[in-house]
Design a protein around this nucleic acid. Structure first.
Lengths: 149, 149
DNA sequence: AAGCATTCGTTGCATTTGCAACGATGTCAA
DNA sequence: TTGACATCGTTGCAAATGCAACGAATGCTT
């Protein structure tokens, strides 16, 4: 029984907690658009980036969203095939691919965003006074650390 | 250019932020054990659960960690093959599989946990006064909602 | 200008994943 | 007891994933 393991506060362990909550939020949000609009989570993330983040290349999205570039590339290919975005070679640096919403993509996004905003409002209402603390904590954890710590 | 999209605070959107931070924390932690101990993230999660969470069945871990039961089943099979855990049919309910650490598994975990604790301490130091607010927020977001909201 | 290293996005491929279906077991009601 | 239904864990299989390798393009140094 007692395996003489070191003491460890499993329930307060942040990588564990963050993973569980992040998966829950993404899944709960996905419920709202997956069946209705027939897009995957990866596609949703890419189209959201293209529309809002100022990210225009695969590389930008990779950095910003921490997504594998191959995953982005394939999601973008599907979105292009379905007419939601265009892919165009950047004239200043022809290694880059400029991603842009088509009118159809903008239309889709303009329908999806209210869902996202409503979900965000719901979360903020649940969090009440803890919202600011959460955002501050996420700010800190988002900062890249310097190589030497 | 201006696609007349609705206003949207992309950078403050919680499902996005949580996903990015959670992935970062898990990856950063994984750096510390992946190469040295040759276990995957899923295996780490299962062995941690078996050792600390009071979870004894696949179903328990599924609920607790929000992991797919097939993923747990396969990770557990590997851990058993490598001698870190045992699988035993529960005598009270023979549908259940009781997972337990072997001495070898306890040994591995006793080496891994200090890494986890050190990482947790590092995060807590970064967070300073925001730690409590973060944990409170995670408490709230962890609660399951009743079916009708 | 030339050569070499680096960056970007795609693709091949082996592995992992998620979903559904399944067998085995358990529960419950009649 | 029986039969219908629910739950648990595994597995088959198609799809998704991550990694490395690659071609194309760029930057950097001389």
């Amino acid at each position: 029984m007692s395996q003489t393991l070191p003491e460890f506060d499993f329930d307060g362990f942040l990588p564990y907690r963050m993973t569980v909550v992040a998966a829950r939020l993404s899944a709960e949000l996905a419920q709202h658009y997956k069946s209705t609009y027939g897009i995957t989570t990866a596609q949703w993330r890419v189209i959201l980036n293209v529309g809002y983040s100022g990210a225009v290349s695969v590389r930008d999205i990779e950095k910003k969203f921490n997504l594998e570039k191959s995953k982005i590339s394939r999601a973008a290919a599907k979105l292009e095939a379905e007419g939601y975005i265009t892919k165009e070679i950047d004239r200043a640096d022809r290694r880059l691919v400029k991603l842009q919403l088509t009118p159809k993509g903008a239309q889709l996004l303009s329908e999806l965003v209210p869902l996202a905003k409503a979900y965000q409002r719901k979360l903020e209402a649940e969090l009440k006074g803890n919202l600011q603390g959460l955002q501050s904590a996420l700010d800190i954890l988002t900062q890249k650390e310097p190589p030497q710590g």
